[in-house]
Design a protein around this nucleic acid. Structure first.
Lengths: 325, 325
DNA sequence: TCAAAAGTGTTATCCTTACACCCATGT
DNA sequence: ACATGGGTGTAAGGATAACACTTTTGA
C-alpha cells in the first residue's frame, strides 16, 4: 500500500453579483507574501466530518465568512497544482476546488466588519475583457505588442499537452487576423498572458526574472485566484447562453433594459437591442408584471419577472446573444 | 485556526474507446463489500510529492495500472460525498476527482495480466441509453412504470437545492409527454433512478430497505462509479457537438461510415446519413486520403483523415448531430 | 442481375441578422 | 418641441431537415 499523503482540501468561491452595469466579485484583501496588500477569493477548508458534500461545505463557510446567502452554485474546477499553490518545502499540499456562486448585491451591506471583504469590479482584474465602450486600449497598447513579441520569438513552441503553438494560440485567444474576438475565451487569454510572463503572478511564481519590468495588466490576486476567476467568467459567459442564470443576478422584477444591461455586463459586449427583446420574449423567459418602472429619463419601461415555467417548457433556455452590436 | 483534517484525494478515470460500433470503458473487477464481484473504475491516489498536477498524476497511474497511453483527458467533477463513498466510522474520507479519457482500443491487448482489467460495453451499465436499434424496451417495461409510481406518490417533492419536483424532473429527463428524449441527460436520468431507489447502488447505500425487489436496471458499479460514468457519458455526448473529439477514438484513417458509426455509438442514436456527410465535409473536418477501404459488402469507401487545421480555422468545430434518424 | 453500401443533388423551413420606424414620457 | 429611452415590423441570408436519386462494388 502506498503511504497516505496528508492533503488539505480548500474551497474557493467566486461570488458574483452585478451592481448596475458593473459585475463584481466578493474579494478579500490580505497581506501577500511580499507585504503588499492583495485581493484574494474567499477561501475555506473542507471538513468532511461537518459537511456531507463539498457544496454544503462551501455554502456554510461562505455564509460564516461573508454573511451572504448564495443562490446558484456550480463547481468549476479542481486544482492540485502544487507549483502554483505553495513553494517548495511547505508542509502540506493543497488541492483547491473552485466554485462559482451567484448572488444579488445587497445595498450598503459591504464588508462584514474586520475581514477585508469587499465587492470589487471584476474588470479591475481583466481590463482587456470589457468591450462595452470600445475595444479596450490596453489590448493594442500593451498586450498585443508584448504577446506578438513572445509569439514570434518561437512561433511553434507548445508546452506539453498543447496541440497548438504560440502563434496559433494567440490568434484564437485574442482574435487577431481573421479570427473574431470570442468573449468566452477568458481563461485562454489569461493563460497565454501567464505563460508569456506578462502578469505579476507569473513573476511571483518565478517564471520571469524578478524585477523585470512589466506593463500593468490588471490587478493581481493571491495564489492562482485570478486563474480561477478567469475560469468563472468563462463559464458564466458561456452558461448565460443556454441556461437562464442571469435572473439569479437580478431582483425579482426588472425592466428589459436592466436585463439586457446585466447580460452585457457579464458578456463584456453590447447586444442588439431589438433582437435581444424579441429573443427574450419569444423564448418565453419573462412575463410582464403589468407595472411600469419610474422613468429614468425617457418613456417608463414595463416591468417583468422571470417565468419559472421555462424550466419546464424549454429545458435549454438561455439568453442567446447573437452577434455583436 | 481550524484543525486540519486528513483527506486522501482519489483519482478515478473513465477511459473510453469505441470497438466497432460498441463504446467501451476500461473496468476493473474486484470483490465488493458483499462478496460479489463488481466492476469499478480504475482508481489511484494523488500524490502531490510525485506529480505536479492532478492530470499528470492521473496519466501516470493509469499507465502503470492498465498499460494504456491516454490521448485526450478532461476533468469531470470532484466529489467529496462521504455519504456515498464510505460508511460512517471509516478512518479517512476520500474526495475523488473524476476524469474522462479517450483512447483507441488496441486489438487483443485486453487485461494487463492479474488485475481484473477489461473492456466492457458502457451500455451494459446503461441499457436504457442506447436508441440505435429501437427505443430500449426496458424503458417502457420497467423504468417508466416504476418512475411514474414514484413520481405520482409525491409529484411535487424536491430534494433540497432542486428547483423542480419529481413529476417535472421525470418529464424532462426521460422525455415523457411532449418533451423529446435528450441523449445528453444521462446523469439526470441516473440520478432520478438513484433517488427513486431503483438501482442497486441506492439499496447498497441504504436508501431503500435491503431485500426490496428491484428490476435489474443495468450492471451496478462500486461506490459511486456509475454516477461518474454517467457524468462522463453526458459530457462526451455534449462535447462531441462542438469540439472534434471523435477523432481521438478513431484510427488515423477511416471511412465516413466508420466516423458516423463512432458518433452514433457515443450519442446512442442514429443520425441522418446524407446530412451527416455534408456537415462533416462542409465543416472541413476531414480530408480524403485518396485511398479506398476494402469493401465490406458493397461499394468501396473512400478513406479520410482528420484535418488538424480545423483547430485553427474554426475554433468551435464539432460534429453537430442534427435531429433524429 | 441483384443486394449492399457509397455518394450527390434539390427543396422547404426555420432561425438569425440587420435595418427602419413608431410610441410615451420628462424637461 | 425635443431629447431620451421604450417598443414593433419586416425583409434578406444562412443553416438545418427531409426527400429522391445515381454509382460502384461483390456474390
Amino acid at each position: 500500500m502506498a503511504v497516505r499523503t496528508s492533503i488539505e482540501i480548500g474551497l474557493s468561491a467566486v461570488i458574483v453579483a452585478v451592481d448596475g452595469t458593473t459585475p463584481k466579485i466578493f474579494a478579500v484583501r490580505q497581506p501577500g507574501s511580499d507585504g503588499e496588500e492583495v485581493d484574494g477569493l474567499p477561501l475555506g477548508p473542507f471538513d468532511p466530518l461537518r459537511h456531507r458534500t463539498l457544496e454544503i461545505g462551501l455554502r456554510s463557510f461562505v455564509e460564516d465568512q461573508t454573511g451572504l446567502s448564495l443562490g446558484y452554485v456550480e463547481q468549476l474546477y479542481t486544482f492540485g497544482d502544487r507549483g502554483r499553490q505553495a513553494r517548495r518545502g511547505d508542509a502540506d499540499h493543497v488541492a483547491s476546488v473552485g466554485y462559482l456562486a451567484l448572488t444579488r448585491i445587497a445595498d450598503g451591506h459591504d464588508a462584514p466588519e474586520g475581514t477585508g471583504g469587499h465587492w470589487r469590479p471584476w474588470y479591475d482584474f481583466f481590463p482587456w475583457e470589457d468591450f462595452r465602450e470600445d475595444r479596450p486600449p490596453i489590448l493594442d497598447d500593451a498586450i498585443l505588442p508584448a504577446l506578438r513579441a513572445w509569439s514570434t520569438a518561437d512561433p511553434l513552441a507548445a508546452p506539453p499537452g498543447r496541440a497548438l503553438g504560440r502563434r496559433e494560440r494567440l490568434r484564437l485567444a485574442f482574435g487577431t487576423g481573421d479570427v473574431p474576438w470570442d468573449e468566452e475565451r477568458v481563461l485562454d487569454r489569461y493563460e497565454l498572458l501567464y505563460e508569456a510572463g506578462l502578469v505579476v503572478e507569473a513573476q511571483r511564481d518565478g517564471r520571469v526574472p524578478a524585477g523585470a519590468t512589466l506593463p500593468v495588466l490588471g490587478a493581481p490576486m493571491r495564489h492562482d485566484h485570478r486563474r480561477i476567476l478567469a475560469t468563472a467568467i468563462s463559464r458564466l459567459r458561456s452558461k448565460l447562453k443556454y441556461r437562464p442564470v442571469v435572473f439569479e443576478l437580478l431582483p425579482p422584477e426588472f425592466t428589459l433594459t436592466e436585463l439586457q444591461q446585466t447580460v452585457e455586463a457579464i458578456a463584456g459586449r453590447h447586444v442588439h437591442k431589438q433582437n435581444f427583446r424579441r429573443v427574450v420574449d419569444a423564448g418565453g423567459l419573462v412575463e410582464a408584471t403589468g407595472t411600469t418602472s419610474v422613468a429614468t429619463g425617457g418613456r417608463p419601461a414595463a416591468r417583468f419577472r422571470f417565468r419559472r415555467n421555462v424550466l419546464l417548457e424549454r429545458p435549454g433556455a438561455g439568453v442567446r446573444l447573437g452577434s455583436r452590436t
